[in-house]
């Protein structure tokens, strides 16, 4: 197990380096003449001014030095937005509580509800409950989160006055307020994943019914419930957990941009959108890299967890 973890960590570091290089290249190479100074200086800038900005931000240095400098700045928290001059890390840090609250709450909801729905649909396959759940999950995977969010905001917030219209209240300030502001975002974000996961789990359980080891379990004299939970479900959960790891990590890294934006949560995702609006490349690059880190690190943790669930992987 230890060897597996160490090997997984090495892969993780390699992937992180590749991802940061890729992101850096995308931002630097796609800018006009490969020079962000021209963009910063504005349309009417003289070549001399552009040159001055180049030197100041180090754009005149070779590309690999720029890469190393940028990474150094990002990881030491020394990166400042070209536009707003804010410290990028501070801004991201400010958005983290909202994003984390959204991710953890929604992540738990969508994992648990999907397991419940997927299992029910599989056990009742072809029956009424399965049909209803199938329809619901089809709607779920076809529903853009900002549209569903708008519906909740209009009907539940404006019309019925049950939930607040948007925004985020820190947990430390008011637990009730925190919860009240997050219920709708949690549901909104979860719906998409519940629709997809429960379908995957359903077919995975139904496939496992044809597995030899499930037949063995039944031949051992276990009850249908024991066969389902201990064998079918237990094995079918492995791919679900892997899937969940990637999606959860992406949400933590600000991937729930649509949900965060429609509810004005001021999280990392919304920061990414705002920085795009004002062409704040350094902030966006740092968010993109942090997302990459989140995905890779959480992905590694989930892999270890999956290896715990599935002993075959450990020795593979």
């Amino acid at each position: 197990m230890l060897r597996f973890v160490v090997r997984r960590m090495l892969v993780m570091v390699a992937l992180l380096i590749v991802i940061s290089m890729f992101t850096f290249a995308m931002f630097v190479l796609l800018l006009p003449n490969g020079n962000p100074a021209a963009l910063l200086a504005g349309r009417l800038a003289t070549p001399a001014e552009i040159h001055l900005i180049s030197v100041r931000y180090g754009f005149d240095k070779p590309i690999y030095i720029q890469y190393i400098d940028t990474m150094k700045n990002i990881f030491t928290g020394q990166a400042y937005s070209y536009q707003s001059s804010f410290n990028v890390l501070d801004e991201i840090r400010a958005g983290m509580p909202a994003t984390l609250s959204l991710a953890i709450g929604a992540g738990l909801i969508w994992l648990l509800v999907s397991i419940l729905f997927g299992t029910i649909a599989a056990v009742r396959a072809g029956k009424y409950a399965d049909r209803v759940l199938t329809v619901l999950s089809m709607i779920g995977v076809s529903m853009p989160p900002f549209f569903f969010g708008a519906i909740l905001i209009y009907y539940v917030a404006y019309k019925a006055n049950i939930i607040p219209i948007g925004g985020y209240v820190p947990f430390s300030q008011s637990v009730g307020g925190w919860f009240g502001h997050l219920v709708a975002p949690w549901i909104t974000l979860s719906i998409l994943f519940i629709g997809f996961y429960s379908r995957v789990l359903r077919s995975s359980i139904l496939d496992s019914i044809n597995e030899d080891y499930v037949r063995t379990a039944r031949a051992k004299g276990l009850s249908e419930r024991q066969v389902l939970i201990r064998h079918s479900l237990r094995n079918s959960l492995i791919p679900i957990i892997s899937l969940w790891g990637l999606d959860f990590a992406q949400v933590i890294g600000g991937g729930a941009i649509l949900t965060e934006t429609v509810y004005n949560l001021h999280g990392v995702g919304e920061l990414a959108r705002d920085s795009i609006g004002r062409l704040d490349t350094i902030t966006l690059m740092e968010i993109v890299i942090l997302t990459g880190i989140a995905v890779v690190v959480i992905g590694a943790i989930v892999d270890v967890l999956v290896a715990y669930l599935d002993p075959r992987i450990r020795l593979a």
Partner: peptide, 22 residues
């Protein structure tokens, strides 16, 4: 794998913005 790592929306707005401008 790198493309896969990113949320589709985040990657989409990033590339989309770059293309829109330049």
């Amino acid at each position: 794998d790198v493309v896969w790592t990113y949320p589709a929306v985040l990657l989409g707005i990033t590339i989309g913005t770059v293309l829109n401008i330049h």
